[in-house]
């Protein structure tokens, strides 16, 4: 499995877990287009939970410690958390770096 697939699967696994604390009509889809932050996505607490879960999943999927929190990161406006695909790209950069 390629690194990109590992990253995407880790994100989907984190989405699956985060869905356990969301109502049926608030479930996030495991899809590259899924909006993570901003309208239709997770609120700030949800995003905090998601980030911490995802870091754990990435550690076991890639064998590397990946920190998704950086100084001045703006959760609300989306940024790297705009969608699953933007997040995949961002994590790939971190892992490559």
């Amino acid at each position: 499995m390629s690194m990109a697939e590992n990253i995407q699967n880790a994100i989907y696994a984190a989405i699956e877990e985060i869905n356990l604390q969301r109502l049926p009509d608030q479930q996030l889809e495991a899809s590259t287009d899924t909006v993570l932050a901003g309208d239709g996505g997770l609120d700030s607490l949800g995003l905090v939970n998601f980030v911490v879960l995802l870091e754990e999943k990435l550690a076991s999927a890639t064998g590397r410690e990946v920190s998704l929190i950086s100084d001045g990161m703006d959760f609300q406006s989306g940024g790297v958390f705009a969608s699953v695909s933007t997040l995949c790209d961002h994590i790939a950069t971190l892992v490559d770096g």
Binding site: L20, L45, N49, L53
Partner: peptide
């Protein structure tokens, strides 16, 4: 091991990981 989640605490004042709350 991660039941007491330091990162969740600093980010959201949440002292425990989600399996504990579940």
């Amino acid at each position: 091991e991660s039941a007491a989640a330091a990162k969740l605490w600093y980010l959201g004042k949440i002292p425990f990981a989600n399996p504990v709350f579940m």
